[in-house]
Amino acid sequence: MNIFRLAGDVSHLVAIIILFLKIWKSKSCAGISGKSQVLFALVFTSRYLDLFTVFISAYNTIMKLVFLVLSYATVYLIYMRFRGSYDSENDSFRVEFLLVPVTGLAFLENYAFTPLEILWTFSIFLEAVAIMPQLFMITKTGEAESITTHYLFFLGLYRALYLANWVWRYHTEGFFDQIAVVSGVVQTIFYCDFFYLYVTRVLRGSGKMSLP
């Protein structure tokens, strides 16, 4: 554990809690892509199956459980409890365009051709693109509430901090996970455009982020 990794995990947790509390307190999921949230629940489910096979540390186990519970709770709020506020009209990204290639790639490129390894690889690849329905929705409606942009900022920051963590681990431990690093770079690139808009419009302006 190094400072980048810890900051990355905290940033990830903050992002998920911001989104959950936003929906919970406002009793509305307007502007939130339910599809992205289902994909993230799928990411955690397929990655954390190792909860049943290996024990790393109490920190590791607790964080995995928290991510799983919060991701399913968020999906529940969007599709069940506050489904009246769900904007299915604008959440029209075709997730099969992500799921099919990601599944195919996980079978082709993995560390071992075993169910757990393929599912782990699937989760890493899927996470890299899971935010696309949300970004698509913002592009389509042309705006995002500032609290939604704070969520996206911390979610993007998390993987960027993991990149720093991997650079650190490479130099101190000689650790290099090609699948995670390449996907992590791709994932972070997807947020770059958003980071720019976040700094120039949300932080310097106020209220909603509207696209030109």
Partner: peptide, 10 residues
């Protein structure tokens, strides 16, 4: 070991 090192990340 590849798996063990990798699974310590979230």
């Amino acid at each position: 070991v590849i798996g063990r090192t990798r699974h310590d990340e979230l």
